[in-house]
Protein backbone atom coordinates (compact mmCIF):
# COMPACT_ATOMS: atom_id res chain seq x y z
CA UNK A 1 0.00 0.00 0.00
CA UNK A 2 2.07 2.85 -1.38
CA UNK A 3 0.14 5.73 0.15
CA UNK A 4 0.86 4.49 3.62
CA UNK A 5 4.50 5.33 3.50
CA UNK A 6 4.27 8.39 1.29
CA UNK A 7 4.37 11.76 2.90
CA UNK A 8 7.01 13.26 5.14
CA UNK A 9 8.66 11.05 7.70
CA UNK A 10 8.08 12.96 10.93
CA UNK A 11 9.66 10.56 13.31
CA UNK A 12 11.33 7.24 13.05
CA UNK A 13 10.69 5.83 16.46
CA UNK A 14 11.77 2.50 17.75
CA UNK A 15 8.28 1.12 17.75
CA UNK A 16 6.72 2.82 14.76
CA UNK A 17 7.34 5.43 12.11
CA UNK A 18 5.15 8.53 11.87
CA UNK A 19 4.38 10.05 8.50
CA UNK A 20 2.72 13.41 7.98
CA UNK A 21 0.50 13.27 4.93
CA UNK A 22 -2.88 14.32 3.50
CA UNK A 23 -6.04 12.29 3.62
CA UNK A 24 -9.25 13.67 2.13
CA UNK A 25 -7.95 17.20 2.44
CA UNK A 26 -6.88 16.84 6.04
CA UNK A 27 -3.38 16.79 7.41
CA UNK A 28 -3.04 13.44 9.09
CA UNK A 29 -0.48 11.28 10.81
CA UNK A 30 -0.01 7.77 9.52
CA UNK A 31 1.56 5.61 12.15
CA UNK A 32 3.12 2.51 10.67
CA UNK A 33 4.58 -0.35 12.59
CA UNK A 34 7.17 -1.59 10.17
CA UNK A 35 8.41 -5.16 10.54
CA UNK A 36 11.33 -5.55 12.89
CA UNK A 37 13.96 -7.71 11.35
CA UNK A 38 15.61 -8.61 14.62
CA UNK A 39 12.78 -10.74 15.95
CA UNK A 40 11.22 -13.87 14.44
CA UNK A 41 8.49 -13.11 11.88
CA UNK A 42 5.77 -14.88 13.89
CA UNK A 43 6.54 -12.94 17.03
CA UNK A 44 6.94 -9.71 15.10
CA UNK A 45 3.59 -10.06 13.35
CA UNK A 46 1.83 -10.91 16.56
CA UNK A 47 3.26 -7.85 18.34
CA UNK A 48 2.50 -5.48 15.46
CA UNK A 49 -1.04 -6.74 14.96
CA UNK A 50 -1.77 -6.70 18.67
CA UNK A 51 -0.56 -3.15 19.14
CA UNK A 52 -2.22 -1.84 15.97
CA UNK A 53 -5.57 -3.26 17.02
CA UNK A 54 -5.41 -2.15 20.63
CA UNK A 55 -4.07 1.34 20.21
CA UNK A 56 -7.16 2.84 18.47
CA UNK A 57 -9.49 1.15 20.94
CA UNK A 58 -7.66 2.63 23.88
CA UNK A 59 -7.46 6.08 22.28
CA UNK A 60 -11.17 6.03 21.76
CA UNK A 61 -11.83 4.99 25.34
CA UNK A 62 -9.46 7.67 26.58
CA UNK A 63 -11.63 10.24 24.82
CA UNK A 64 -14.70 8.87 26.57
CA UNK A 65 -12.81 9.29 29.83
CA UNK A 66 -12.28 12.95 28.95
CA UNK A 67 -8.66 12.81 27.87
CA UNK A 68 -7.85 14.41 24.51
CA UNK A 69 -6.31 11.98 22.02
CA UNK A 70 -5.98 12.26 18.24
CA UNK A 71 -9.08 11.17 16.32
CA UNK A 72 -8.67 7.87 14.50
CA UNK A 73 -9.65 7.88 10.82
CA UNK A 74 -8.49 4.55 9.51
CA UNK A 75 -7.00 1.32 10.81
CA UNK A 76 -5.22 -0.81 8.25
CA UNK A 77 -4.46 -4.13 9.88
CA UNK A 78 -2.71 -5.60 6.85
CA UNK A 79 -0.05 -2.90 6.96
CA UNK A 80 -0.19 -2.33 10.71
CA UNK A 81 -0.96 1.31 9.93
CA UNK A 82 -3.20 3.77 11.74
CA UNK A 83 -4.32 7.05 10.14
CA UNK A 84 -5.12 9.69 12.73
CA UNK A 85 -5.56 13.39 13.34
CA UNK A 86 -2.43 15.51 13.25
CA UNK A 87 -2.30 17.44 16.51
CA UNK A 88 -0.48 20.69 15.98
CA UNK A 89 1.41 21.66 19.05
CA UNK A 90 4.54 21.06 21.02
CA UNK A 91 5.80 17.98 22.79
CA UNK A 92 5.77 18.47 26.55
CA UNK A 93 9.30 17.05 26.55
CA UNK A 94 10.52 20.10 24.61
CA UNK A 95 8.44 22.54 26.63
CA UNK A 96 9.17 21.65 30.23
CA UNK A 97 12.57 23.29 30.35
CA UNK A 98 11.46 26.52 28.68
CA UNK A 99 8.47 27.56 30.75
CA UNK A 100 8.22 29.21 34.15
CA UNK A 101 8.02 27.19 37.32
CA UNK A 102 4.34 28.06 37.78
CA UNK A 103 3.52 27.05 34.21
CA UNK A 104 5.43 23.83 34.66
CA UNK A 105 3.58 23.00 37.86
CA UNK A 106 0.25 23.76 36.27
CA UNK A 107 1.07 21.66 33.20
CA UNK A 108 2.18 18.71 35.33
CA UNK A 109 -0.97 19.03 37.42
CA UNK A 110 -3.09 18.77 34.28
CA UNK A 111 -1.08 15.79 33.06
CA UNK A 112 -1.78 14.18 36.42
CA UNK A 113 -5.50 14.86 35.97
CA UNK A 114 -5.39 13.15 32.58
CA UNK A 115 -3.67 10.10 34.01
CA UNK A 116 -6.20 10.06 36.84
CA UNK A 117 -9.07 10.07 34.33
CA UNK A 118 -7.48 7.23 32.36
CA UNK A 119 -6.90 5.12 35.43
CA UNK A 120 -10.38 5.90 36.70
CA UNK A 121 -11.71 4.29 33.51
CA UNK A 122 -9.39 1.30 33.71
CA UNK A 123 -7.09 2.51 30.96
CA UNK A 124 -3.34 2.04 31.34
CA UNK A 125 -1.34 4.17 28.94
CA UNK A 126 1.76 2.00 29.09
CA UNK A 127 4.29 4.58 27.97
CA UNK A 128 3.82 7.76 29.94
CA UNK A 129 6.79 9.80 28.80
CA UNK A 130 6.76 13.52 28.11
CA UNK A 131 7.41 12.78 24.42
CA UNK A 132 3.95 11.26 24.29
CA UNK A 133 2.18 14.41 25.47
CA UNK A 134 1.42 17.29 23.15
CA UNK A 135 0.27 20.75 24.16
CA UNK A 136 -1.80 22.17 21.30
CA UNK A 137 -2.44 25.80 20.34
CA UNK A 138 -5.55 25.98 22.50
CA UNK A 139 -3.73 24.86 25.58
CA UNK A 140 -5.13 21.32 25.57
CA UNK A 141 -2.81 18.45 26.47
CA UNK A 142 -3.18 15.48 24.13
CA UNK A 143 -1.92 12.05 25.05
CA UNK A 144 -0.59 10.00 22.16
CA UNK A 145 0.99 6.61 21.59
CA UNK A 146 -1.17 4.08 23.36
CA UNK A 147 0.63 1.23 21.61
CA UNK A 148 1.82 -0.31 24.84
CA UNK A 149 -1.39 0.36 26.71
CA UNK A 150 -3.98 -2.01 28.12
CA UNK A 151 -7.33 -2.18 29.85
CA UNK A 152 -6.63 -2.94 33.46
CA UNK A 153 -8.12 -1.82 36.76
CA UNK A 154 -5.56 -3.38 39.07
CA UNK A 155 -3.55 -1.20 41.39
CA UNK A 156 -0.40 -2.93 40.20
CA UNK A 157 -0.93 -1.76 36.60
CA UNK A 158 -1.64 1.81 37.70
CA UNK A 159 1.49 1.76 39.83
CA UNK A 160 3.67 0.55 36.97
CA UNK A 161 2.15 3.18 34.69
CA UNK A 162 2.97 6.03 37.06
CA UNK A 163 6.31 4.52 37.96
CA UNK A 164 7.16 4.84 34.26
CA UNK A 165 6.10 8.47 34.30
CA UNK A 166 8.39 9.05 37.26
CA UNK A 167 11.24 7.22 35.54
CA UNK A 168 10.75 9.19 32.35
CA UNK A 169 10.91 12.44 34.28
CA UNK A 170 14.06 11.29 36.05
CA UNK A 171 15.87 10.30 32.88
CA UNK A 172 14.83 13.29 30.75
CA UNK A 173 14.06 16.14 33.16
CA UNK A 174 16.24 15.27 36.15
CA UNK A 175 16.65 18.93 37.15
CA UNK A 176 13.02 19.15 38.21
CA UNK A 177 11.84 15.56 38.07
CA UNK A 178 10.74 15.47 41.67
CA UNK A 179 8.76 18.69 41.52
CA UNK A 180 7.08 17.58 38.29
CA UNK A 181 6.14 14.20 39.66
CA UNK A 182 4.68 15.72 42.81
CA UNK A 183 2.46 17.92 40.70
CA UNK A 184 1.46 15.02 38.51
CA UNK A 185 0.38 13.22 41.66
CA UNK A 186 -1.52 16.29 42.90
CA UNK A 187 -3.49 16.34 39.66
CA UNK A 188 -3.99 12.60 39.93
CA UNK A 189 -5.34 12.98 43.46
CA UNK A 190 -7.63 15.81 42.37
CA UNK A 191 -9.41 13.38 40.03
CA UNK A 192 -9.31 10.11 41.94
CA UNK A 193 -9.21 11.37 45.52
CA UNK A 194 -6.46 11.42 48.11
CA UNK A 195 -7.02 7.85 49.19
CA UNK A 196 -6.55 6.32 45.74
CA UNK A 197 -3.55 8.53 45.07
CA UNK A 198 -2.04 7.40 48.34
CA UNK A 199 -2.50 3.70 47.58
CA UNK A 200 -0.98 4.09 44.15
CA UNK A 201 1.99 5.99 45.61
CA UNK A 202 2.55 3.15 48.04
CA UNK A 203 2.34 0.74 45.14
CA UNK A 204 4.97 2.73 43.24
CA UNK A 205 7.32 2.42 46.21
CA UNK A 206 6.71 -1.29 46.33
CA UNK A 207 7.49 -1.57 42.61
CA UNK A 208 10.68 0.39 43.10
CA UNK A 209 11.78 -1.88 45.90
CA UNK A 210 11.10 -4.88 43.70
CA UNK A 211 13.47 -3.53 41.07
CA UNK A 212 17.18 -3.92 41.13
CA UNK A 213 19.35 -1.86 43.45
CA UNK A 214 17.11 0.76 44.87
CA UNK A 215 18.41 1.48 48.38
CA UNK A 216 18.64 5.20 47.77
CA UNK A 217 15.05 5.43 46.71
CA UNK A 218 14.08 3.55 49.80
CA UNK A 219 15.79 6.19 51.91
CA UNK A 220 14.14 8.96 49.94
CA UNK A 221 10.80 7.33 50.47
Amino acid sequence: MAEVTSGTLLKKGAEASLFLTEWHGRRVIVKVRLPKKYRPTELDEWIRRYRTAHEPELMHEAKLAGVPTPTIFLVDMANAAITMEFVEGKQVKLLLGDISKEQRQELCFRIGEHIGKLHGHGIIHGDLTTSNMILNGEGKVFLVDFGLGEKNTELEAKGVDLHLMKRALQSTHYEFAEECFQNVMRGYAAVLGEQDAKSVLEKIREIERRGRYVAERREEA
Binding site: P40, E42, L43, W46, I47, G126, D127, L128, T129, L148, V160, L164, R167, A168, S171
Partner: peptide, 13 residues
Protein backbone atom coordinates in the same frame (compact mmCIF):
# COMPACT_ATOMS: atom_id res chain seq x y z
CA UNK B 1 9.19 -23.84 16.58
CA UNK B 2 8.27 -20.64 18.36
CA UNK B 3 6.24 -21.46 21.47
CA UNK B 4 3.95 -18.57 22.49
CA UNK B 5 5.36 -17.00 25.66
CA UNK B 6 4.73 -13.64 27.36
CA UNK B 7 6.32 -10.57 25.80
CA UNK B 8 6.24 -7.81 28.38
CA UNK B 9 7.56 -4.37 27.50
CA UNK B 10 6.26 -1.54 29.66
CA UNK B 11 7.38 1.72 28.17
CA UNK B 12 11.14 1.70 28.45
CA UNK B 13 11.14 -1.10 30.99
Amino acid sequence: KLVPLPYVVKGMD
